[in-house]
Amino acid sequence: MNLEDLVRLRRARDMMDREYAEPLDVQALANVALMSPGHFSRSFRAAFGETPYSYLMTRRVERAKALLRRGDMSVTDVCFAVGCTSLGSFSSRFTELVGETPSAYRARNHDDGAAIPACVAKILTRPVRIGEAKSAPSS
């Protein structure tokens, strides 16, 4: 993959990071990257190791975790606030990435992480698929 393609893919990934709550689809992201949807999806996966949809949902779940930790929003409100349109799909993906349901995550005490700086908490609380966490090499 050439450097120009990587720059365009990064532009689309940055858009997902910024506008995760917007209704983004592969066509819109491919337009940002100046690629066809098929080429964009294949190139994105080759460059970043996951599909555009998977990356976007990870961003949405990451933001949902932060909103749920606050405790002042219902799971349904959080679902729509992060750009998901189906509570069932949101809950399934959240559970897949976090290992517990959004309701259980919201109900759990999160005080032990309050003293951690936000930049460190972001790394420590980043959602990872359960299968990936188990298969990650240990050093």
Results as ranks from 00 to 15, higher is better:
S41Y: 02
G131D: 15
T51C: 00
A66F: 08
A133W: 10
A47D: 04
S89T: 13
C119V: 12
P37I: 09
V82M: 04
G131K: 11
E19W: 09
S54N: 11
A114I: 12
M15N: 06
L24V: 02
E132L: 13
P102T: 09
P102H: 08
P117Y: 07
E62K: 10
H110D: 08
A104D: 15
R93N: 11
G88W: 04
F90I: 05
P102G: 07
A115D: 14
E22T: 06
E100Y: 07
S103M: 08
A66L: 12
S135K: 15
R126E: 11
G113F: 14
T85D: 13
A12N: 05
S138W: 13
S41W: 05
V98C: 10
C84N: 13
L24P: 02
S41F: 04
H39R: 13
S92G: 10
R60I: 05
I123E: 14
P127W: 03
A107W: 02
N31V: 03
M15H: 15
G88Q: 09
S86A: 07
D25I: 03
R60A: 04
V26M: 02
G49C: 03
S36V: 03
T101E: 10
R45P: 00
T58Q: 14
S139N: 11
N31C: 00
P37F: 03
K134S: 12
R18V: 08
E22S: 14
R70Q: 11
V7M: 07
M15T: 15
G83W: 00
D17T: 08
S86H: 12
T58G: 13
V128P: 00
A21Y: 10
H39F: 10
T76K: 11
V7P: 00
S92M: 07
C119R: 13
D25K: 10
S138I: 15
D112T: 13
H110G: 11
R69T: 09
R10Y: 01
S41C: 05
R93E: 14
D25Q: 10
